[in-house]
């Protein structure tokens, strides 16, 4: 790790100001950033910690929305979202291990947009709104490919607003080594239709599986997906699975999520 300056502001305004500095980077849970700094693959001049900002923390119900502060750790989401949005809580409870769940945050995960992370699928399948220090971004516009998002330089996520579905579930097939999602499917049913988001599988990061959404919107059952296959085109191929295997898992995990939806 190279030397860096560390600041821990108490307000979003101060954090944004600090991020205006030269080669400053925001630090939330640090579950990706810190290992890459230890490997000297990342060398920020200043780390701006977001975890000292109370306004970024916590889970609360706001009408038919569940609002989660960006710096809320996964373990807190797993606990505090369970009553209002159990599928989201279950997803949070399966991320990494207890240490990761107590350090890693939802905002950090979404901003990083790892193609194998779990949270992006929940945000996209829920049609969530990503709220930043300067605007609101629809999930459909937020995720822009592997590790790419609509966030501007220095822009920080402050909260995520999840419309609460009628039914939802997340089904994850874990990569055996990292236990990230080799393929994960988040299915959410709303009054106006079903949304299905797939993580882990595509070279373009999280995506909506529109054929499945159409089938499930008219018949929300695993049977509705019979005969539906995702294309292996642009799926990830690596030592843990071929593109064909991941395309196959897209179908399997989506069916399982539908069957488990509650």
């Amino acid at each position: 790790m190279y030397n860096f300056d560390f600041v821990k502001p108490a307000s979003v305004e101060d954090a944004v100001a600090a991020l205006g500095g030269d080669e400053a980077q925001p630090l939330s849970g640090g579950m990706t950033l810190l290992p890459s700094m230890k490997q000297r693959l990342n060398a920020p001049a200043t780390l701006v910690s977001l975890t000292g900002i109370d306004a970024l923390k916590g889970v609360c119900r706001d009408g038919d929305m569940l609002v989660i502060g960006a710096a809320t750790p996964h373990a807190v989401v797993a606990r505090d979202a369970a009553a209002d949005y159990p599928a989201l809580a279950e997803l949070a409870g399966q991320i990494g291990d207890p240490m990761v769940r107590n350090r890693g945050t939802i905002g950090g995960s979404l901003a990083n947009n790892d193609p194998s992370a779990c949270y992006p699928s929940a945000a996209l399948a829920s049609g969530a709104t990503i709220v930043t220090d300067k605007r609101e971004i629809a999930a459909d516009d937020f995720f822009q490919g592997m590790f790419a998002t609509a966030l501007d330089e220095g822009e920080i996520i402050t909260s995520v607003r999840f419309p609460i579905p009628q039914k939802a579930a997340y089904a994850k097939f874990a990569q055996p080594a990292s236990r990230f999602a080799l393929t994960g499917a988040f299915v959410a049913q709303y009054a106006n239709g079903v949304r299905v988001a797939i993580t882990g599988a595509s070279e373009n990061g999280v995506f909506r599986w529109s054929e499945a959404e159409a089938a499930l919107s008219s018949n929300f059952s695993a049977d509705a997906l019979a005969g539906l296959a995702a294309s292996a085109d642009q799926m990830i191929g690596d030592l843990h699975g071929t593109p064909e295997y991941r395309a196959h898992l897209v179908g399997v995990m989506t069916r399982r999520a539908v069957a488990a939806a509650h």
Binding site: P176, A177, S178, D238, L239, H240
Partner: peptide, 24 residues
């Protein structure tokens, strides 16, 4: 039998060089 595998690519780079890819 089920998990571990040390893999080199054809250029001799170690593909499974950390626990992210080497499944203990």
């Amino acid at each position: 039998a089920l998990l571990e595998r040390c893999v080199y690519d054809e250029d001799g780079q170690l593909v499974s060089g950390s626990y992210m890819d080497y499944a203990m």
